[in-house]
């Protein structure tokens, strides 16, 4: 598998990380090295193995449907970058 600069840019865009042309080139070299290590995985036949998502074989515990949280928006918004009228402000959202 060979990574391209376009792959790096595509992924950076998905991850919403600004990346310059120069950085893309650098990252490409590093990622290619890492992926050459990762490629070792492909040598193993895993067709008979169940994927393992969790470290423990457990099932989901359920929470009782009760309201336990009270309004803390003043505390929470005291550390927000930009707030007005109790709303978090962001550059205009265009639908």
């Amino acid at each position: 598998m060979t990574l391209s600069v376009d792959d790096v840019k595509r992924v950076a865009n998905l991850a919403r990380i600004e990346i310059s042309e120069e950085e893309s080139q650098q990252v490409l070299i590093q990622l290619s090295g890492i992926f050459s290590l990762i490629e070792q995985m492909q040598a193993v036949d895993t067709s008979h193995i169940e994927p393992m998502s969790h470290a423990q074989d457990m099932i989901q515990r359920l929470r009782e449907d009760v309201v336990t949280e009270s309004d803390q928006h003043i505390l929470f918004q005291s550390i927000a970058p930009q707030v007005e009228a109790s709303l978090y402000l962001v550059p205009k959202v265009i639908e």
Partner: peptide, 14 residues
């Protein structure tokens, strides 16, 4: 090829 394969190998390692 990557994520699922890694999860399977995770079981092998465990």
């Amino acid at each position: 090829a990557y994520y699922l394969q890694a999860q399977k190998l995770r079981r092998l390692i465990a």
